[in-house]
Design a protein around this nucleic acid. Structure first.
Length: 157
DNA sequence: GCCAACGTTGGC
DNA sequence: GCCAACGTTGGC
């Protein structure tokens, strides 16, 4: 089993949206490195959902990977904001996976709080200028985060 | 809204 | 294959 961090702008798609929909395609990834990571995902992998470009930035929830990668057909749709004319049905460039809602973290584990833990200093998302929207998370990082987050959620529910 | 850091494009 | 110009990301 592998662990991931998946970025989203909550104004476009938030953890609340995923909670409502229970399951959703993770579409619109248009970066080769992120795509390649998605292609290596397995069912039951776990992914932190990270809210970026918002007034509250940080880890907002947890999702499970519920499908392996398959063609992202939003690339074929001229009406879609994710349209890419280079990608065609018989030779799709872009893929997506489906993710299922698991948890919402309240409050969000903010970026600035994450920066305060030396255990998380290796995380890609904390590296300055890292724009990769799908990031691998190490087992150690996951373990630390999971412990931290379940403790926090306990205190608040 | 600003702007640094990054990824992509395209001329050569 | 190099690299300047450009568009985008994302924290602040």
């Amino acid at each position: 089993m592998n662990y991931w961090l998946m970025k989203t702008e909550p104004r476009v798609f938030s953890i609340e949206d995923l909670e409502k929909e229970k399951q959703s395609p993770w579409e619109g990834v248009r970066n080769y490195q992120a795509r390649n990571y998605m292609k290596t995902m397995s069912i039951q992998d776990l992914a932190f959902i990270y809210h970026s470009s918002d007034h509250t930035i940080g880890i907002a929830g947890l999702a499970s990977v519920v499908s392996t990668a398959y063609p992202d057909d939003t690339a074929f749709d001229p009406q879609s904001p994710y349209h890419d004319p280079r990608s065609c049905l018989n030779n799709p460039i872009w893929v997506r996976v489906d993710v299922g809602f698991l948890k919402k973290y309240q409050p969000i584990l903010t970026l600035s709080e994450m920066k305060s833990y030396p255990e998380l200093s290796t995380m890609m998302v904390l590296k300055k200028g890292c724009r990769l929207s799908i990031q691998p998370v190490s087992h150690e990082e996951f373990k630390f985060l999971n412990t931290l987050l379940s403790h926090r959620n306990h205190q608040n529910t």
